[in-house]
């Protein structure tokens, strides 16, 4: 029995390690989502548009570029499971959540940037997603627009 355990030890240890890491990762993801919810609630409704012109009902006497970006990594375990998903196809929910978090974070940073300059709205908002990690799936979401006031 003991010898079996000793033999299985190199196999069990990484599993325990990965299990712990994935739990930490899931907890961090929840915390980040909660943090985003809180910051979005604190800002309330801030009008942003992807229209090129000042929308009806808004007046503007100045404009300036505002930006926000965020780089998020997926985590090794998610990458590992996602590689199985690509065999059978279908939606990769874990990646979807990561990118959505990155997008919300970038958008919030852009809004915070605009608000600190006294903006009333942001127009012509554009989102850009790029893979910056080469072989590693680190995704950057970059978000920019013109704040008006």
């Amino acid at each position: 029995m003991d010898t079996i355990l000793v033999l299985l030890f190199p196999l069990i240890l990484p599993l325990v390690g990965y299990g712990a890491l994935s739990l930490i990762g899931a907890k961090m993801e929840q915390n980040h989502e909660r943090n985003l919810d809180e910051r979005e609630a604190a800002i309330g409704h801030f009008p942003i548009f992807d229209l090129a012109n000042v929308p009806p009902g808004f007046t503007a006497s100045a404009g300036q570029l505002v930006t926000g970006n965020a780089v998020l990594g997926t985590g090794w375990l998610k990458q590992f499971f996602a590689s199985f998903r690509t065999l059978v196809g279908g939606e990769i929910v874990s990646y979807q959540r990561v990118l959505q978090r990155a997008r919300r974070e970038a958008q919030l940073r852009m809004i915070e940037d605009a608000r600190s300059q006294g903006a009333t709205a942001i127009i012509n908002v554009r989102f850009e997603t790029s893979d910056v990690g080469g072989v590693k799936p680190f995704s950057e979401v970059f978000c920019y627009g013109t704040m008006i006031r």
Partner: peptide
Amino acid sequence: KNLVGGELTGYTELLN
């Protein structure tokens, strides 16, 4: 950091 995933602040700053 990517062992657990999450924001990679160093990269965010670098790209900015």
